[in-house]
Design a protein around this nucleic acid. Structure first.
Lengths: 222, 222
DNA sequence: CCTGGATTTTAAGGTTAATTTGAGGTTACT
DNA sequence: AGTAACCTCAAATTAACCTTAAAATCCAGG
């Protein structure tokens, strides 16, 4: 699911754009000013920023975001069509679209940026974990540190992520990860579950991400 | 020096744009059709492509370039303002600008793409290495000496730089650099990683630039 | 609410597999 | 022919993985 942070003060346009983007399957967080965006930018895949805003203008906000986070694409939106404005916007942002625009064009330009920034993969938020499935990256949102998994641990976790909310039997898990039949009574899987928990759980002794379903197997809930 | 390949059949516009870009310090190769571009695309930093061309249209040319060379930015130029045209263009290209446009806006958009594709004379600092991304000149900041890479090493390192922070599987790396399928168990890649480490790492026995992700592959972090 | 068997978790050491390293051989270019 | 780059292969090293056993937990029946 692609997460968009959209900052726009005009209610009519804001509502219309948000609605349109949601219909196209994006997750949209619409804010009416640049205040308090910091708590969102770390969880978001792209920022759409209107230039004319009450208080701090969009250019300043965009420049600050880029300074702190170069890997986050920014698309500027503006009614100002003057070349000077475009130049200022494009000096730091990744695209500049003038109003009025067709929502499909906005979506197409969003897709270009997501493609280019490798953000069009699934970014999954699981409690304190941010998971970039394409980059094989897992970040602990509390410490900001990346969690390093070994091969088996990674494939095991991936299997859970592909089957979110499903109860997975030990057979399914073992066969899905190891590619060979599970032998009743084998503890290998359980031990690897532990290794994984040790790395991803806040408190490995009281796991909340990978739950145990006694007598059956395990589950990871969204 | 940034090299631009510009394909435009209309002589007036072509001359005007070429002139403008040259004044801004770009090296411009202007062609009036898509024929014979192959000999240039490997030496060029960005392609500017008009949609309406005699013979093969700009969309087809752009798609082919992207298929063969994903790391070359393409900016589409067109008098067609219909959303459908923009959507088709943006489905593969990296920007779409409608005529008439201000030459400064074109230049600004070119700069955005060069920045994003690391084609401008960006300098990347990786620990003790200073890397001029455009020509991939690597200087060891401690000795002040330039590090010379061989062909394979050069492509391999470039692949890492284009995918900074991503964990790259051995398959991805092998296929990205050698262009042929990776055979399970082949050690060739690993040996080249070693050659590369020997040249770029401070202590090749304890590499800090190219990290090993056991069971998966390698990664270079920014 | 206590107890005992079943199940899961934990810990540690041994085994195995992946990676690194070294050296020799092949190929391609001048 | 000579050199540099590249590839191949086997030995050494390292870290992941598996096995085992003991401890902890859960759940049903008394």
């Amino acid at each position: 699911m692609v997460h968009i942070l959209y900052i726009e003060d005009e209610k009519d346009i804001g509502k219309w754009v948000t609605q349109n983007l949601k219909e196209k399957g994006y997750q949209v967080k619409w804010m009416q000013s640049g205040e308090g965006i910091d708590q969102y930018i770390s969880t978001v895949d792209i920022v759409i920023l209107d230039v004319m805003l009450p208080g701090l203008d969009g250019f300043s906000i965009g420049k600050r975001i880029k300074r702190e986070n170069k890997d986050l694409p920014i698309l500027m939106l503006s009614a100002r069509t003057a070349v000077e404005d475009k130049l200022e916007g494009l000096s730091f942002a990744d695209d500049y679209l003038t109003k009025p625009f067709h929502p499909d064009e906005l979506a197409a330009r969003i897709e270009v940026l997501l493609r280019r920034f490798n953000k069009n993969d699934n970014i999954l938020q699981l409690q304190h974990l941010t998971i970039h499935t394409k980059d094989l990256q897992i970040v602990n949102q509390e410490t900001g540190e990346e969690i390093q998994l070994t091969g088996k641990q990674y494939y095991l976790f991936q299997y859970f992520l592909r089957h979110l909310n499903q109860i997975l039997t030990k057979e399914q898990l073992y066969e899905g990860v190891w590619g060979e039949p599970y032998i009743e009574g084998d503890k290998t899987l359980m031990v690897h579950i532990r290794y994984l928990r040790e790395k991803i759980e806040k408190d490995p002794a009281n796991p909340t991400i990978i739950e145990t379903i006694r007598g059956i197997g395990y589950r990871v809930k969204k």
